[in-house]
Amino acid sequence: MEKSTWSTKTGLAQMLKGGVIMDVVTPEQARIAESAGAVAVMALERVPADIRAQGGVARMSDPELIQSIIESVTIPVMAKARIGHFVEAQILQALGVDYIDESEVLTPADDEHHIDKHAFRVPFVCGCRNLGEALRRITEGAAMIRTKGEAGTGNVVEAVRHARSVYGEIRRLQSMDRNELYTAAKQLQAPFELVQQVAEMGRLPVVNFAAGGIATPADAALMMQIGVDGVFVGSGIFKSGDPERRARAIVEATTHYNNPELLAEISKDLGEPMVGIEISTIPAEQLLASRGW
């Protein structure tokens, strides 16, 4: 019997496919998420919209809060560590979280190095804006990828940009011969073997979810049709007028993403969505997606 193999790490992400992972800040919210049909919850002290509004350094959440959320639900619980903060990751692993998100939503702890994720028994998910970034994270041991989007904005435009970038670059690799792939690997700043594998398979070697700005059932279905395997919804649920209903609707839209008649029904009467932010009004130094490299 072998524990925490690469197959069990990437495999949990495969089991989450077609599902919605929801940000929650209390055990009560975690139970609402589970009962709405979330496949997992992300345990946090503040959702990204509040981190953005309040400013300051955003760190790993209080272990006691994470523990209480773990105890309140039966579905997997994820938690965030700062980029490069391998001790926060060690603490999260000791707490028994099911996945660690090495996340740009928190303030980076190291401005040069990401965590060596192969050194952990618990699997990691990491953000990316493009294929090169995704492959660098996978090289470091990420067993799941999410496109970053721009967290806490309720604006899906960056999530779309990042997903289109990843899938567009994969399609470009598929058209290349071997001579061109060597150069592509250099440009992507990723190992040749991984680039070659992506070109052959026509997809990332791990599951890829969308994150950052998904606020409506239609947003979730849009990301699914673009090609992601599932969605993270952060501020979009518990910053809306009727979280329970919206959570359920986003779950159903992620399943029936290709059925516009059902999406029309699912999208009805959900109350107020979270108030969004136009990306161009955010000062460059406050954009979260540019954290990590």
């Binding site: 019997m1 072998e2 524990k3 193999t5 495999g11 949990l12 692993q93 099911d98």
Partner: peptide
């Protein structure tokens, strides 16, 4: 248990014969 207890093990399934089937157990 939780995710860090997920594991792989070889399984002898009589109707499949040899070799054993690799079982991947995730939560």
């Amino acid at each position: 248990g939780r995710q860090t207890d997920s594991f792989e093990a070889d399984l002898a399934l009589p109707m499949l014969g040899a070799p054993p089937l690799r079982g991947i157990f995730i939560r």
